[in-house]
Write a protein that binds this DNA or RNA. Structure first.
Lengths: 345, 345
DNA sequence: CTGAAAGCGCTTACAG
DNA sequence: CTGAAAGCGCTTACAG
């Protein structure tokens, strides 16, 4: 019923091994037999069984993509479709398939990674996040399995291939941008300190403050979990401070929109009363009100390059680890403005 | 080096077939040997080779997800992450893996579907779109391969399991909502007539017009391809008409935001000068300006249910085809308003 | 309740 | 340039 390599072999009067070789386009098979075998394959409607091939060849020609479980880093976040698009393009170009994790808790995801690797389902893995003390990362590293991170590993960053923006300097620059506009009370909104990216950005933010002779005020840092339930309360808290911030750095445009909406409900106008700057530069941000000043982090490239590096590594596991920094660009629009002169309390 | 079923068998003093049976938790194996074998498995760090299992058992325990290639239906569209989330949850609950297409042209995608099916990579397929005359659909149907559509098939809809909203009636209701506000010149923006969803929605729109005694004006229908380059021109064209529309029905919130932005550049205010209603009800739409009136189509459920149906079908291929309609809800916010009295031309 | 054997559909040294 | 044979790591009738 199902056409196998044997059927083709019989019909073409060759051995199964020969058929296998013409599928692989082995150079030592004569053009003549290649042609004949190919005709028979077409005639019989032969399609190779990928499972059998994987088993025999010890390679699945697919890469596993590990999604994080955090709310901030969730499917709701436009970051993921866009990285996936980059990965997808690279995978397709190199004839690799894509296998996705489905778990939602850290434990589930960890189990999936183990089963993908030990079950030989994938030839390599891309981690779409970098978490402090990540078990999956340790497992992959210890198993010496090809993998790549979109982000910066929390340790051993020389030994692990990863693709990331320069989050420290980018955030420093973003913060400086606000400082140059005269802002001194700048809040940092969102992010989860369990992720490296948040730490890097927070550090960049602190460095900029420090260099400008400003002191970091803990109250100006709003953690992700305070946002989950209601960004509203976080904003209300910030604005009820004796010295409320005059500028906000948020981790994602979507978050910025929500903040802006809550601010306006308090009758605080962006950018007149408070400046907002964000990351990710969604297409939409050009059309939002006000058009949002945001950092384009080249999400697509992060995915594309991470996948390219992984495939390189799969093909040649002896390749040394490398770090690739994807450039960022600050897109100035209308959500930031020089600080207004105000009476200091 | 790699631990196989044989190693476990030897260590546990049983036959490989017995080990296989304890993995499958076969009822006719005694608890005693199950326990012993499991201990050995743990001791040796055994993990089943999924490829080998798939080959022998003729089942991959993974489902293939086919993404469409259109711009409107692209990764940029928040629809996809959200369906994927639904599918992902269902797949995980039933211990299925997820395999994604990576192609971007119709041909590439078609080839991938063929290779997924014939290569036995997946046990079933979910089509995340429904296109007129879709080759992939025909192929799957003819091959009698388990599959499910998020959407309504363009033909034979009794014979193909699919999950969709009632797009005709929902759009009729949306249009009626505008008509009840006094609007008579209502434009329909976006969508590609190559997709069933667009046809359904356009039909619902026309039905509402007709029942209200209004005539459908072709100029009020703006196709997707006119939007791609610049929604700006489409809006400028519409508003330069002798009788410009007083209301817009758009296919997605993101598209609505863009339209609103272009309108305001022309100094046309939403909802004062023109009403806008949309589909998908992104979380963001609560915080946009103005808060957008939009139809919640329950994207997550579309994915979840489509996946549940597929898995059912995989487990029992004799199951009759079914259609499941996911309810929609019109979320009224501030982007629609009664039509202003205006001088008719 | 358990085992021996055949088989899933390929690939790949080895030999000629 | 091509073939015969072993093997990838499982599952599953069949037999007892």
């Amino acid at each position: 019923m199902v056409i196998t390599i044997k059927d083709v072999a019989k019909q073409a009067n060759v051995a199964p091994s020969t058929v296998s070789r013409v599928i692989a386009n082995h150079p030592r098979i004569s053009e003549k037999t290649k042609k004949r075998v190919r005709e028979v394959m077409k005639e019989l409607g032969y399609h190779p069984n990928l499972q059998a091939r994987s088993l025999a060849a010890r390679s699945s020609q697919t890469i596993g993509v590990v999604m994080p479980n955090s709310a901030f880093f969730s499917f709701q976040n436009p970051f993921f479709p866009e990285v996936l698009r980059g990965i997808s393009t690279s995978a397709h170009d190199h004839k690799y398939g894509l296998y996705l994790t489905t778990g939602t808790t850290e434990d589930e995801i960890f189990e999936e990674v183990i089963s993908m690797v030990n079950g030989k389902r994938v030839d390599g893995i891309i981690l779409l996040y970098s978490r402090i003390n990540d078990r999956a990362l340790h497992f992959l590293y210890d198993a010496d399995f090809p993998f790549t991170i979109v982000g910066t590993p929390y340790c051993n960053d020389k030994g692990i291939t990863h693709v990331d923006n320069d989050n420290i300097n980018t955030t420093k620059r973003v913060t400086n941008y606000l400082i140059e506009l005269g802002h001194e009370r700048i809040a940092f909104i969102g992010g989860n300190l369990g992720f490296v990216v948040t730490n890097d950005r927070l550090n960049g933010y602190k460095m900029a403050l420090e260099e400008a002779g400003l002191t970091f005020d803990k109250q100006y840092y709003v953690e992700e979990r305070m946002l989950k339930e209601s960004g509203k309360e976080a904003i209300e808290f910030l604005m009820s401070l004796p010295s409320p911030p005059t500028a906000l750095v948020t981790q994602d445009d979507l978050m910025a929109y929500e903040m802006i909406s809550h601010l306006e409900k308090l009758n605080i106008k962006v950018p007149d009363d408070i400046s907002v700057i964000s990351f990710n530069n969604l297409t939409l941000s050009e059309h939002s009100k006000p058009p949002l000043t945001s950092v384009d982090i080249n999400i697509y490239d992060l995915g594309l390059v991470a996948s390219n590096c992984l495939i390189e590594k799969i093909k040649d596991p002896t390749l040394p680890a490398k770090r690739i920094t994807i450039p960022t660009e600050l897109i100035e629009r209308d959500s930031c403005q020089p600080v207004k002169e105000i009476v200091r309390s």
